[in-house]
Design a protein around this nucleic acid. Structure first.
Length: 429
RNA sequence: GGAGGAGUGGCCGAGCGGUUUAAGGCGGCGGUCUUGAAAACCGUUGAGCCGAAAGGCUCCGGGGGUUCGAAUCCCUCCUCCUCCGCCA
């Protein structure tokens, strides 16, 4: 959510500030009209309530003194009715007003590239060289079944499309990747590991911005207020919802492994083959909570931490700065990391690292107790960030495709071997 | 799932129908004292909203109700604790 003060002060500039982003322009205009009306009704109701409080206190005083207070009681009753009326009118407006605010996307940082879609994203840096093969490299959806380690058909039988059974070396590698990533981030990058619940409530999803707008992307547990986590960002960021953190605790850096569950509504026909787009996948997530002044440095660090995983695994990748139109709803600035996939001869997203500034902190009420410029303590909204470090399923895909050999076997990246009992190559099983 | 108990400001905790403008403590901030610090003492210190300001309103786990008036009484939901049952 954006701050009300900010919306008021920059109301006329909002269309410019949100250019390229998807939002309801009519709703924004309506916000401006409702704001004035809402404040008028609020002032009116407050004045009535004030009068009612005064009269009630007078009843108390008179009764204590043994005087008759019938007239005051009647007056107070009448005022109560007027307050209820005023309240009913303002509640309806408040409701619509809030719904509009909750649906407005974040304002992009000034450094975000202009542009409407993916094609306008800016490549910031490229690392490594896509390997050249003396043979036609295969896609993982051919390699995996040939090796007997990925089974798409049985997963479809057991559950449905967009699920995969990993077995043997694939499940071992998947597990090794999780352990490798967590170890790297906790031991070398200073993150604290957490294992959060894989089910979250609607308040948490509101806090990080998935609700109310993106309910169709989530798996909702019928008859409950619970949802499967779409990303560890939700439980981990919400660890500190409704909290005031001591300033000396910041920055906070967490890393967490969770499975992620996504309904993928609206993705029909997209990436239907292989492991790229699944209803369930594993991810190691990085989350940072910082003082506002520190968040852009933190974004660079967090992104570097994610890149280090790819470098240790010797997987070629590039870093892309998302343009305004490609930015997620809550983000002010996002870097995507794209890994090279020989099977598709393309770079594909494997991590997305974002600074949400105070957008999530405002929704989730995450603040820090800081000393103001006047030396007095005050509460300040924190900035939240997160990024994949990395998406495990897609990393497995990248390993299989980049490390494949002419005979159909796959080498195991050296950095991963200690996590696989020394396994150096994957052969058909 | 059953039976009891409890949710109050950054934290702990009193309050159980009308000076609650929420006692007291801890912590924070300012001061006295000190070479400096600690200790002691004094003062100060919740959040959100409306308002140019003066000031006003709301908030005692969430929601609803009773009453002229609710932290306080009633209903309901949630969470935590204790015991019982079931269970990896």
């Amino acid at each position: 959510m954006l701050a009300r003060d900010f919306l008021r002060q920059h109301f006329d500039e909002m269309p410019h500030l949100l250019r390229g982003r998807a939002y309801d322009t009519a709703a924004l205009a309506r916000w401006g009209a409702l704001d004035a009306e809402r404040r008028r009704l609020l002032t009116e109701a407050d004045a009535l309530r004030s009068e009612k409080n005064r009269v009630s206190a007078e009843v108390g005083r008179k009764r204590k003194a043994g005087e008759d207070a019938t007239a005051e009681q009647e007056r107070s009753k009448e005022l109560g009715r007027l307050v209820d009326e005023a309240q009913a009118r303002s509640a309806a407006i408040e409701e619509e007003f809030s719904r509009i605010e909750e649906a407005l996307p974040n304002v992009p940082h000034e450094s975000v590239p202009e542009g409407a879609d993916e094609s306008a994203n800016a490549v910031v840096r490229t690392w490594g060289t896509p390997p050249s093969f003396p043979f036609e490299p295969k896609a993982h959806w051919d390699l995996g079944p040939a090796l007997g380690i990925l089974d798409f058909e049985r997963a479809a039988k057991v559950t449905g499309s967009r699920f995969t059974v990993l077995s043997g070396a694939a499940s071992l590698l998947n597990r090794a990747l999780i352990a490798f990533m967590l170890d790297l981030h906790t031991r070398e990058h200073g993150y604290r590991e957490v294992l959060p619940p894989f089910i979250v409530n609607s308040a948490s999803l509101f806090g990080t911005g998935q609700l109310p707008k993106f309910e169709q992307d989530l798996f909702h547990l019928e008859g409950t207020d619970w949802y499967l986590v779409p990303t560890a960002e939700v439980p981990v960021t919400n660890l500190h919802r409704d909290e005031v953190l001591p300033a000396d605790q910041l920055p906070i850096s967490y890393c967490a492994y969770t499975p992620c569950f996504r309904a993928e509504a609206g993705a029909a026909g997209k990436d239907t083959r292989g492991l790229i787009r699944q209803h369930q996948f594993d991810k190691v997530e990085l989350v940072k909570i910082t003082r506002p002044a520190d968040s852009y440095d933190a974004l660079e660090k967090l992104t570097r931490d994610a890149e280090t995983v790819l470098e240790r695994l010797e997987l070629p990748y590039r870093r892309v700065a998302l343009c305004r139109g490609d930015l997620g709803f809550a983000s002010a600035r996002t870097y995507d990391l794209e890994v090279w996939l020989p099977g598709q001869a393309a770079y594909r997203e494997i991590s997305s690292c974002s600074n949400f500034e105070a957008f999530q902190a405002r929704r989730a009420s995450i603040r820090a107790r800081v000393t103001g410029p006047d030396g007095k303590p005050r509460n300040e909204l924190v900035h939240t960030l997160n990024g994949s470090g990395l998406a495990v399923g897609r990393t497995l895909v990248a390993v299989l495709e980049n490390y494949q050999r002419a005979d159909g076997t796959v080498a195991v990246p050296p950095a991963l071997r200690p996590y696989c009992g020394g396994l150096a190559e994957i052969r058909p099983s």
